[in-house]
Amino acid sequence: MRRIVSTAVLFATTFGVAFAGLRAGERNISAAAQQKPDATEVKIDNFSFGPAELKVSVGTTVTWTNRDDIPHTAVSTDKTFKSKVLDTDEKFSFTFSKPGTYEYFCSIHPKMTGKVVVQ
């Protein structure tokens, strides 16, 4: 009886470690993807846009995802784009068809600012 239990624990532990290793690997891949200049994702975390400045080529679609427990928006100061209010995990996408520098902010928390440079 005793042996069976400890084997089961051992199995679970090994499986757990293997699973944790896999997740860590996944995270590395997505971190690398974010660093590429053509990244098209902006994550909203802790009341900030990340990356705060994004460089993309003309025709790129950028997607904002709110990962906070509080709603946010992404609104460009020149009114080119304006998201609806994004609750937790909601997304907003916009395709940039003209080159330029687009500064934007959260209209609910105006201290939150970001920039998309389209080339």
Binding site: T77, E103, Y104, F105, S107, I108, P110, K111, T113
Partner: peptide, 15 residues
């Protein structure tokens, strides 16, 4: 008593 509204027309970077 004076009730004021300070949550509209917020500007980028502002208060």
């Amino acid at each position: 008593f004076i009730g004021l509204v300070n949550v509209l027309n917020l500007k980028a970077g502002g208060l």
